[in-house]
Amino acid sequence: MSSVLRKPAGPRARRDTTPVSRALVMVVLAVSAVYFLFPLWWLLVAATRPFGEQFSGGGLWFDGFGLFDNLTRLTEQNDGIFWRWMLNSVLYCGVGALVGTFLSALAGYTLAKYQFPGRGVVFGLVLAAVLIPKILFTLPLYLMFSGIGLVNNPLAVLLPSVVSPFGVYLSRVFAARSVPDEVIEAGRLDGAGEFRIFRTLSVRMMLPALVTIFLFQFVEIWNNYLLPAMVLSDDRLQPVTVGLVGWNASHVAVPPPLVVIGSLVSVVPLVVAFLALQRFWRAGMTTGAVK
C-alpha cells in the first residue's frame, strides 16, 4: 500500500552546488551523525569487552573479546532473572499491542465509516487524550489500582496499555483513506454482516496501517517505565526496563558491567524491528504530524 508512504516530490534536479557549500553541509551532517551514534557505538563496544573492562579507557574501540562470557554472566545473575524480564517485556508489549491494535482498529474504523450520535464526542475525547501524555495518568492510575487491590498484577500493566488514543486516531485516518465506501456497500449487498465486512474486507485493506499501529503501541508499552515501576513491586513480574534501572540503582549489589550488557541486549530487538520496519514507522509519524 503505497498510500501510507510519502513520496519525495519528484526527481532531484541536477547538482549545481558549489564545493564549499557541499563541504559545509556534509561537515554539519557528519557532526550530527557522530552525536547520534556515539552513545550506541560506545554501548556496542563496551559490551564486547572482557568482563570488568567496560569502563576503562575511552571505550571507543574494541579491546579483547568477552561478549559471550558477558552474556553468560548476565544469564547467571540472580538465577537468570534478566531473561525472565525480557520475556515479561515481550509478553506485556506483544499482548498489549495486539489487543490494543484490535480495539483501535475497530474504534477508528467505526469513527471513519459510520454516522452515529456521539461520534464527535468520542473523537474529541480521543484527540484530547492524544495531546496529554500518558504518564500524567499514571499516578492517579496507581492510586486507583491500589484502592481496588490491583497492584502487583500483570493486569495493572496490560489494562492501561491496550488503550491507545493515538492508535484510534491513526486508524481513523487510515480507514478513511484506504477503505472505500463502495467495498463496504458491496459486502452488505452480498449479505455479509457488519463485523464480517470489517474482519474480511476492511482489515485486509487497513493491514499496513495496522502494522504501523501495532509497532507504535509495542514501542510505547516498552517505553512506559513509570507504570510498571509503580504497580509491579515483585521483580519476577517486572519488564526489562524496570529491572535494569533497579540493577543500576543497586550500585555494588549488581556489577555495573552487567547493566551495560543488559542495556545492549534489551535494545537489540527494538533496533532490529526499527530497521526492518522503517517505512511503517515513518508512515505513522508523518500521519500523526500532518493533521
Binding site: 517505565y225 526496563t241 542495556s263
Partner: peptide
C-alpha cells in the same frame, strides 16, 4: 527507537 529509560542508562 531506543526506549527513554535505556537511553538514560546509556547516557
Amino acid at each position: 527507537a531506543i526506549p527513554g529509560v535505556s537511553a538514560a542508562l546509556v547516557w
